[in-house]
């Protein structure tokens, strides 16, 4: 239990040969983040624009929502048209971490050809990418780079965790592997497999395109987007009006 408190205190495991060693899911910080039990490095998450439910951020810190001049939120019809365009132009970051990246390359090759849906333009610069395919295990030394690359991608962005290692660390429950990339960045679609076949990745990308089409993001619950707030308020107001009108008619 002493080990556990060490974890809770400063948000990372410490090598402690005397105090036993952490085992099992309950000892992994990212799962606790999801349960709201633990808030490691909250300042860091806030700075990256990712905040926990119930937290709020200033607009400046979020990189800015899509707004028309005058602060008018984007109408939902336009958002749908844009979503349709985006779903045919999802350019992933040219970025692979381990063996899963080979299968990702196979998807770009002539047999599976991701260019059919306009995805072959894998951009080397995160500024021009629309999302990441986290292909392979992520070591704790690489993790800050992965987070940084994610943060450099302009909004809107989507993340696909490819392979068991990116999802959960796979068998590498060891000193140097991040136990699931979703402890660091919000993930939209998980593609299990070791490594997944290109067909599996393709299905994951189809699911991702569906989310792109609907303009749904993994960070929806994590950060507030003013345009979306306005839409939600309008929907709520319309729903509040509709039963009232029905009663009058009755």
């Amino acid at each position: 239990m002493g080990m556990r408190e060490t974890i809770l205190g400063d948000g990372f495991y410490r090598y402690d040969p005397e105090g036993g060693r952490p085992r099992g899911a309950a000892d992994r910080p990212h799962l606790m983040v999801r349960d709201g039990l633990l808030q490691p490095a909250l300042e860091e998450r806030t700075a990256s624009g990712i905040c926990l439910p119930g937290e709020s951020l200033d607009d400046d810190e979020m990189g800015g929502p899509v707004q028309f001049p005058g602060g008018i939120a984007m109408p939902v019809q336009i958002e749908r048209v844009l979503g349709f365009g985006r779903s045919f132009s999802f350019w992933p970051l040219l970025f692979g971490l381990a063996c899963c990246a080979i299968e990702m390359m196979a998807l770009g090759g002539s047999r599976f050809d991701m260019s059919r849906f306009g995805m072959e333009a894998m951009r080397a610069s995160p500024r021009q990418a629309d999302g990441m395919i986290v292909a392979g295990w992520c070591s704790i030394k690489m993790a800050p780079r992965v987070v940084r690359l994610y943060e450099q991608i302009p909004d809107p962005k989507w993340v696909l965790a490819m392979g068991s290692c990116a999802i959960s660390g796979n068998v590498w429950d060891t000193y140097n592997i991040v136990q699931g990339i979703d402890s660091l960045i919000p993930v939209d679609v998980y593609v299990p497999g070791c490594p997944p076949r290109p067909e599996a990745l393709w299905q994951g990308l189809e699911m991702l395109r569906e989310r792109v089409k609907q303009s749904r993001h993994a960070y929806d619950g994590l950060r507030r987007i003013p345009a979306r707030d306005v839409l939600a308020a309008q929907t709520a107001a319309a729903e509040a009006c509709a039963p009232a009108a029905g009663e009058v008619k009755a």
């Binding site: 495991y13 410490r14 992994r28 704790i140 060891t174 140097n176």
Partner: peptide, 8 residues
């Protein structure tokens, strides 16, 4: 086992 020693 366990992410021991280092941290992100």
């Amino acid at each position: 086992e366990g992410t021991v020693g280092g941290r992100v």
